[in-house]
Design a protein around this nucleic acid. Structure first.
Lengths: 122, 122
DNA sequence: ACGATTATTCGATAAATATCGAATAATTGT
DNA sequence: ACAATTATTCGATATTTATCGAATAATCGT
């Protein structure tokens, strides 16, 4: 498998823009930390010192770029990182911005790694 | 080994911002294509339909973020992609935005790859 | 030294982004 | 139904970004 359909440049720009902000990168990192369970808007706004309306503004940017998902649980709205989308973004960068002969390829470095991720995915 | 010093979040935001624009992503991709030899400002401005002053504006953004290098050759100014910097950016995303158990790891997929880039780096 | 070539800086201007408080919507508990 | 809780939308405003033409700087050829 390996879905292999790479994102197009215009989506990539949207995704990069979404992450290219201090607060949004921080929020996304927290959501990555939280895993599929996600975090609600209140927890997030509380953790980062931000007005609720400002946080919503940033979450909309991430949501619109498809990097996070949104669901409702009673009166909370829960956000979670979309790892598939992030996967697409990293894939795009590796394939288009790192040169043909892998001039930049940190991915395999940190561990011996046998190059066959499990990809559990929920 | 493995330089291991990861970029800090604030540099990461700068690098993401630099790439988060249609023209800059396109320019960077061309520079990646061109490899260490690079391209001069004129070739770049010509290839993309952009006023020279506008291109300079975008190249400064990439340069300031450390994603490209600049050197002079007679009356041309030649820009080249900095693969080490790109490496750092991808490394940051993989380590901080992809979950602990590698929820997003496309890097090892495309090729068998033996993970030893040359990194000439003049 | 002079004109031609190449690129950057300098205004000026238009457009997009980020911020917040106040008003509105959605949901729950009583 | 009503008050309380949680989150979003709606202005209003300040800041940053992007764009271009014109002026300046740097280098080359002759």
């Amino acid at each position: 498998m390996s879905d292999s359909s790479l994102p197009d440049p215009s989506w990539t720009v949207a995704a990069l823009s979404a992450l290219a902000h201090e607060h949004r990168l921080a929020a996304f990192r927290r959501l990555v930390e939280a895993g599929p369970a996600g975090l609600n808007a209140g927890e997030l706004a509380n953790a980062m010192a931000l007005a609720p309306s400002s946080l919503t503004f940033h979450l909309q940017a991430l949501l619109h770029a498809g990097l996070i998902t949104q669901r409702r649980a009673s009166r909370h709205v829960i956000y979670a990182a979309d790892f598939t989308a992030m996967n697409g973004l990293v894939g795009y960068l590796l394939q288009n911005c790192c040169g043909r002969d892998g001039a930049c390829r940190p991915a395999c470095d940190p561990a011996p790694v046998m190059c066959h991720p499990e990809q559990k995915s929920a």
